[in-house]
């Protein structure tokens, strides 16, 4: 159990915070100390809106043991509406309910927990957008 590592990552995982190069405007996720486009070291935190679409996905059958509790689940490549493509677990939907191009939204869910006495790690997952209409 690496508590400091989870603590260091938690803001970007809870909120989907990446980085933006203040010189060329390139957006990254996860955040970068050096811009992959212009090599600038001037990068600031950038809050993503948490919306995107699935560009590919797969069903996970043999997960790492920490994720076994959550089977079956899908992992997808998601193109965020701001541009970057990220890999994330899909929740509230099984692989057979997904399709390429489907719009998804970010939610903060339990990623894994270290037994009954360790820390609980929360982070971003994506789900099909909750459709709503008001009464």
């Amino acid at each position: 159990m690496n508590v400091p590592r989870h603590w260091r990552e938690q803001i970007r995982r809870y909120r989907l915070v990446g980085s933006k190069c203040t010189d060329c405007g390139r957006l990254s996720f996860p955040n970068r100390a050096v811009c992959p486009k212009c090599n600038s070291r001037n990068n600031e935190n950038y809050q993503y809106a948490g919306r995107g679409k699935i560009i590919s996905f797969t069903n996970i059958n043999s997960p790492p043991k920490e994720h076994k509790y959550n089977l079956p689940y899908a992992v997808a490549l998601i193109e965020l509406m701001e541009g970057p493509v990220i890999t994330a677990q899909i929740t509230d939907a099984r692989a057979e309910e997904l399709e390429i191009g489907m719009e998804v939204e970010m939610v903060t869910r339990k990623i894994m927990e270290y037994n009954d006495d360790g820390i609980i790690c929360y982070g971003y997952k994506f789900r099909p957008i909750v459709e709503y209409a008001h009464p």
Binding site: Y69, T108, K110, Y122
Partner: peptide, 13 residues
Amino acid sequence: PGADEDSVTIAIE
């Protein structure tokens, strides 16, 4: 609640 939901995740939503 789903397997990855608890009072924290529900409160965040």
